[in-house]
Structures are given as C-alpha cells and as structure tokens.
C-alpha cells in the first residue's frame, strides 16, 4: 500500500544519493588537481564544498521532519537514522577534500618531492570504498558493506608507510620538511576519507540487517563473523 507521504522518503533517499555522488566527485577532482598540479581545479573543489554542507542541512531537516510527523519504525526508522549519520560522514569527506585542495597551491609552488605513487594508490582505494559503500545503500547489501570496512586497514597501512618515508625525507633533507608535511597531511586526509567510507559501510550493515557492528572485531577480521 502506497502512503501519501512515501514521496518524502523517496526525496530523502535521493538527496542522500546525490550527496554521495557529490562527495565522490569532490574526492576524485581533488586528486586530479593534486596529481596534475591544477590549482584552478583545487579552487573549484573548495568552492563546491558548500553543496555538501547544504545537502547535509537538508537531509537533517528532512529526517527530523519525518521522525516527528511520520513516526517511522523498522526499516524506515533505520533508514532515517542511517541517512543522518551517513550524511554527516559525507560532509566530513567533503571537508577532507577541501583540506587537500587548500594545500595544492603551496605544493605546486615548489618542485615535487617525489613522484606520486602511494598517494594515488591509497586514494584509489579510498574512492572505491566510498563508491562501494554508497552502492551498498542502493543495493542494501550487507556483505559488500562488510568488505568495504575490511579494506580500511589497507589504506591505514599505506598511510603509515608514507609517514615513515616522509619522516626519512625530513631527517635526511631538512629543506624538504614543509613539502613532506603537506604530503603527510594529505595522506592523513585520504586515510580519514577511507575511515568515513568505512563508517558509512557500517551504517549500511545496520540498515540492511539491524545489526550494529561498530567497535567490534567484525570490521577488521572477516573470520569473526
């Protein structure tokens, strides 16, 4: 039976999808700007962050309205709660993309410290995690979402490796310190983007199964399930 307010939930759902697509676009563009040293594209990313901020506000408003007027239960209740949390994560993904974008003009002003190898690799995993977490929302696929959570450790590992490498640069060639620090912060931002993707995937498991796997071994160890 279709209810007169079902369109409100459809709008909520499509706003969340739009927000996810916007966040993925922001991350992809900022990485392109970094690798291509494209300061204009970096500036576009900074400007476009407002889209994500506005979508987060809209989604919160829709969720509060739906909860207060429509008394959702079961899957609908989980959808509204998860939607609010996921939109917060996506907004933070946008903030991390903006943080990276703001560092690009400073990095391009100097010669590259080293060829970009690890950062694009790490970023590719983070973007894929984000993309897959959002697919899980559309497909309500808990198994795929769990796989997203488990990939987070790969990003963490590259981040640690890069940190060690950049620390060596700073020790051996102190003149590289400012560039190495910028790259460390960028690496940390990408690592945070993967964390948000992992959070979203956990939320999608809750949406699909009503099971809260946060802070459990399940996200790290596949054999725990």
């Amino acid at each position: 039976m279709k209810r007169f307010f079902d369109t409100e939930l459809e709008t909520f759902r499509s706003d969340l999808v739009l927000m996810g697509e916007t966040a993925v676009r922001q991350v992809r563009q900022v990485l392109e700007a970094l690798i291509e040293s494209d300061v204009n594209l970096a500036q576009q990313v900074v400007t476009a962050d407002d889209e994500l901020d506005q979508l987060e506000l809209k989604i919160d408003e829709e969720a509060i309205r739906y909860m207060s007027l429509r008394s959702p239960v079961a899957t609908e209740l989980r959808l509204v709660i998860v939607g609010m949390k996921a939109s917060h994560d996506l907004e933070r993904v946008g903030d991390e993309a903006t943080n990276i974008a703001r560092r690009i003009p400073r990095l391009t002003a100097e010669p590259p410290l080293k060829p970009y190898v690890d950062l694009p690799k790490m970023a590719a995993i983070a973007v894929e995690m984000l993309r897959d977490a959002l697919d899980c929302f559309l497909q309500v696929d808990a198994e795929k979402a769990l796989a997203v959570c488990q990939r987070d450790k790969d990003v963490d590992e590259i981040n640690r490796q890069l940190y060690r490498e950049l620390s060596s640069y700073m020790i051996e060639r102190p003149e590289t310190t400012s560039r190495a620090l910028e790259l460390m912060f960028i690496s940390k931002s990408i690592e945070r983007i993967a964390d948000h993707a992992s959070n979203i995937a956990e939320e999608m498991i809750y949406l699909a199964k009503g099971e809260d796997i946060r802070h459990t071994e399940h996200t790290r160890n596949p054999s725990a399930r």
């Binding site: 959702p72 239960v73 079961a74 989980r78």
Partner: peptide, 18 residues
C-alpha cells in the same frame, strides 16, 4: 518488532503499509 522485525508482513503492518 519496531526496529528490526524478521517477517516482511510484520514490517509492512507496523509501518502502516497494510
């Protein structure tokens, strides 16, 4: 029953769909 019912008929009823 109200957060994670296991039966689709329960879900539909508590959500006001039938």
């Amino acid at each position: 029953i109200f957060i994670n019912p296991s039966d689709s008929q329960t879900e539909a009823y508590v959500s006001g769909r039938f």
